[in-house]
């Protein structure tokens, strides 16, 4: 038995903790486990990845580093599916399983992969209901644990306690998270996880000297970050009521991303890049800005 679980989320979602909840609960069940996150340049809100490898045979875990051929993928935000940097379903094992945190029905998701099992659920909604804020680590971790079909509730409960206490969560908040874990654990059924196989054969190339400037770490194409489309980070979407708006411009000035622009005495929001911090909502002196959950925005 070999489980290669890959967690995709955004900084702040808690994918590292989710991967550790799976890792610890498998460890408590007596399996051999490795888990690790990737820290990169990315900040809160940007795509991040974490990995958990589980086996009953230590020899199958003679492995280090990234998982390129997962048989279990957990996507903590549906918007990641179309993110070329995250590319969460890349390399997924044929017949493997992907969980996607979404309010949508499976049929409404854009998934290009055939022959994989898709499981969906609204962990964000459950988290808002049980914990009162968006904490995906517990929910996603619990779902991953259940999907393996190898781990009992007791081990998961123990793992949630251990991992959340590790990051300073205790008392009432911990109890709420355990309740959330229980709910998520009961939400899904064990999924098929065919053993991962090396799907891709790597070809080795020979590099040669390259002419300047291509051998220098420089950027000449300045001001090019807009193509990253950080709008996909958003959990809440700000909406400006132009009737109420007095055009005072405070939201334009206070927007850290500079995505609100005054055009012809009207305000235009670049939703492709708005990260949804909601400073505009909080600072608007006439309360002309409201927000909705991204998933519910039309």
């Amino acid at each position: 038995m070999l489980i290669y679980a890959r967690f995709h989320g955004r900084g702040g979602h808690g994918v590292k903790t989710a991967s550790r909840i799976l890792g610890t609960s498998a460890h408590l069940e007596g399996f051999h486990v490795q888990d690790f996150p990737i820290y990169g340049a990315e900040r809160r809100g940007a795509p991040v990845t974490a990995f958990t490898k589980i086996s009953d045979d230590p020899l199958k875990l003679l492995d280090r580093g990234y998982i390129f051929n997962p048989n279990l993928v957990l996507v903590s935000d549906e918007s990641l599916l179309s993110d070329p940097i995250a590319n969460p379903l890349s390399g997924i094992q044929t017949g493997g399983t992907a969980f996607i945190n979404t309010t949508k029905n499976i049929d409404h998701l854009q998934i290009k992969h055939d022959n994989i099992n898709i499981v969906v659920g609204d962990v964000t909604g459950l988290s808002l209901r049980y914990v009162g804020r968006v904490v995906l680590s517990t929910g996603i971790g619990a779902i991953a644990t259940k999907l393996t079909g190898m781990i009992r509730w007791n081990s998961l409960e123990e793992a949630v306690k251990e991992e959340l206490q590790e990051i300073g969560i205790k008392g009432e908040l911990l109890e709420k998270n355990i309740l959330l874990a229980k709910t998520c654990f009961e939400l899904v059924y064990p999924a098929p996880l065919p053993p991962p196989s090396q799907q891709k054969k790597y070809k080795i190339v020979e590099l040669n000297w390259t002419h300047p400037p291509y051998n220098i770490p420089e950027i000449w194409n300045i001001g090019n970050t807009k193509i990253r489309k950080t709008g996909s980070w958003r959990v809440f979407k700000p909406l400006i009521n132009l009737e109420k708006c007095t055009r005072c411009s405070l939201c334009v000035i206070y927007c850290p991303e500079g995505v609100i622009e005054m055009v012809d005495n009207s305000l235009v929001v670049d939703y492709d890049n708005c990260k949804g911090c909601l400073i505009c909502f909080n600072e608007c002196p006439v309360k002309a800005i409201s927000y909705v959950r991204e998933a519910e925005a039309v």
């Binding site: 900084g11 702040g12 340049a41 990315e42 900040r43 809160r44 809100g45 940007a46 001001g223 090019n224 970050t225 807009k226 193509i227 990253r228 489309k229 950080t230 980070w233 411009s249 334009v252 000035i253 206070y254 927007c255 850290p256 991303e257 500079g258 995505v259 005054m262 670049d270 890049n273 708005c274 990260k275 949804g276 911090c277 909601l278 400073i279």
Partner: peptide
């Protein structure tokens, strides 16, 4: 008077709500 040209375009990988980039 501050609505002049912006020299930091959107799409940075910095945290949502970052005070430094503001």
């Amino acid at each position: 008077d501050l609505l002049s040209e912006d020299y930091v375009v959107a799409g940075t990988p910095l945290c949502s709500g970052c005070g430094a980039i503001l």
